[in-house]
Nucleic acid binder design. Structure first.
Length: 487
RNA sequence: GGCCCGUUGGUCAAGCGGUUAAGACAUCGCCCUUUCACGGCGAAGACAGGAGUUCGAUUCUCCUACGGGUCACCA
């Protein structure tokens, strides 16, 4: 039975790199008929952040990564929070001490600091000062209650090779490995230790994590060996980086799932995007639901090189998901953004939704896009010029009064009615559609680019505001031509 | 700096000894159209460099360059 685990530490918002790791763990488990476990790694008491655990649950729920075992739902391998497993680790560490595979270290932080400072990059890490203390001395210090940690004895020579499902065979010289701390002086295990013990106790078969752990993996393996435990299958993932090739950070834009959602990206689109960051399916398909991914995901499609997180691509995916949304759901989704601009009630919400759905790629684009509907925009009369539609301020000055008269008494003020009236005017004047639509759009919106056409804008504005804006425009145009005449 | 890993168009990437080196995003052009967007069609654009191995290297090996990761009582 394949078992994978997502083991975040509750130290803040969920970064999309972490989310992708969680996603791949989930997909590996699902694609192989296995189980996906959530474990909270809170062994660093100093870095805990309030609410971080909730953020983890919230994010996993939002993207649909349902775990089979975890702190909130239990399971046969609990508890699933490392701080609750605290008493579990010491016996394992002491077992290694008894077997001569680990030892108590009484070195103070100050001494370690000094060590780092004096040895100019020559010696790797700890100098193994306590590795061979006489047992009497150890006992004496222990009895005196001297603060200590437990360190693992690393082999002083030789090398070790392990297999990674993505990176292949990796060999590391044992001399590169320092005697790592297993149990901290506060009694908590280090990540390195707790991780191995828990993965073993929880019967984890596939360890999936970022490639930053690649170089410390030999240390884990030595631990598995020391206990005589079976080493899991390793799946190291390439990093996600920013446009400048550096680690993804706030500098590149939103990097947490939550921030992305706030900017108006859909969870499904985010998942789809990161699924393809570092993994590629056998065919050329790009649009995948989580269930579809679960069915076809396979480790051999994971690539080795780091990939740049591309916000443009995310926006494209988001646009695809937006367009695929049922109209009703879209309308509900954008409602908060609309009330921000219009207040309540939002005029013509269904029509607005219809206009916006094919046009936006992010929720955050909406306010700017519709602002002209609530406030009259200042604009240059040049805007009435449009070559393609054979429009000019002069033609507008002639057509706008006709439009005003045609629309003034119109009722009901519906899309169909406005459309028919305007088209009838165009036909009557032997004008092309664009020749009347263009000045109408400019007069109503004050901008050349609008979501939807002139008719839709008129309907949303309502008759009074539409006529008012028409009136302003035709007066300005009349004033301008009078000036011109004087000159 | 030591060690580990990586390197196909601007970005994501297919490729796993013989290909006109896919596809997607972005860019540009054309079409559709009352603007824009959507949609459709098309264009430009890549194997980091050098040695080998081989009849033949993007693919295998080595070196160089560049990039990244890691060297904690953090995870």
């Amino acid at each position: 039975m394949v078992r994978t685990r997502y083991a975040p530490s509750p130290t803040g918002m969920m970064h999309i790199g972490n989310l992708r790791t969680a996603l791949y763990e989930y997909l590996i488990a699902r694609s192989l008929g296995g189980r996906f476990i959530l474990r909270i790694e809170d062994t660093d008491q100093e870095r805990l952040v309030d609410g971080a655990v909730d953020a983890i649950y919230k994010t996993l729920r939002a993207v649909g990564l349902r775990h089979d075992e975890g702190p909130d739902i239990g399971g046969q391998y609990g508890p699933y929070v490392q701080s609750e497993r605290r008493r579990l680790y010491r016996p394992y560490a002491e077992q290694l001490v008894r077997e001569g595979k680990a030892y108590y270290c009484f070195c103070t932080r100050e001494r370690l600091e000094q060590l780092k400072a004096t040895a100019p990059g020559e010696v790797v890490g700890y100098d193994r000062h306590c590795r061979d203390l006489p047992s009497g001395e150890v006992q004496r210090l222990l009895d005196a209650g001297t603060a200590c940690v437990i360190r693992q004895k690393m082999p002083l020579s030789g090398s070790k090779t392990f297999q990674d499902a993505v990176y292949g065979a990796i060999t590391v010289d044992n001399r590169e490995l320092e005697d790592q701390v297993l149990l901290k002086s506060d009694g908590f295990p280090t990540y390195n230790f707790a991780n191995v013990v828990d993965d073993h106790l929880m019967a984890i078969t596939h360890v999936v994590r970022g490639s930053e752990y690649l170089s410390s993996t030999p240390k884990y393996n030595l631990l598995y060996d020391a206990f005589g435990w079976q080493v899991p299958t390793y799946v190291h993932l390439p990093l996600i980086i920013g446009k400048d090739g550096r680690k993804l950070s706030k500098r590149h834009g939103a990097t947490s799932f939550e921030a992305l959602v706030q900017e108006g990206y859909l969870p499904e689109a985010i998942v789809n995007t990161i699924a393809l960051l570092g993994w590629c399916p056998k065919d050329n398909r790009e649009l995948f639901s989580l269930d579809e991914l679960s069915a076809i995901f396979s480790v051999d499609g994971i690539s080795k090189s780091p990939s740049v997180f591309d916000y443009d691509k995310l926006a494209w995916f988001n646009g695809e998901y937006i367009r695929a949304m049922p109209a009703g759901r879209f309308q509900a989704w954008i409602h908060p953004a609309l009330t921000q601009v219009f207040g309540e009630p939002v005029p013509e919400p269904a029509l607005l939704a219809e206009l916006l759905q094919p046009r936006i790629s992010r929720l955050a684009e909406i306010p700017e896009m519709v602002r002209f509907l609530t406030a009259r925009q200042p604009y240059e009369l040049d805007l009435f010029s449009n070559k393609k539609n054979k429009a000019s301020p002069e033609s507008a000055a002639r057509i706008l009064p006709l439009l005003y008269d045609a629309l003034a008494g119109l009722a009901p003020w519906t899309r169909q009615a406005v459309h028919d009236r305007v088209m009838a005017l165009a036909a009557g004047q032997e004008l092309k559609t664009g020749q009347v639509m263009w000045p109408l759009r400019i007069a109503l919106s004050g901008q050349a680019v609008t979501p939807g056409g002139a008719i839709e804008i008129a309907v949303i504005l309502g008759r009074d505001e539409s006529l008012a804006r028409l009136n302003i425009a035709l007066e300005r145009l009349a004033g301008a031509s009078a000036e011109k005449g004087d000159a």
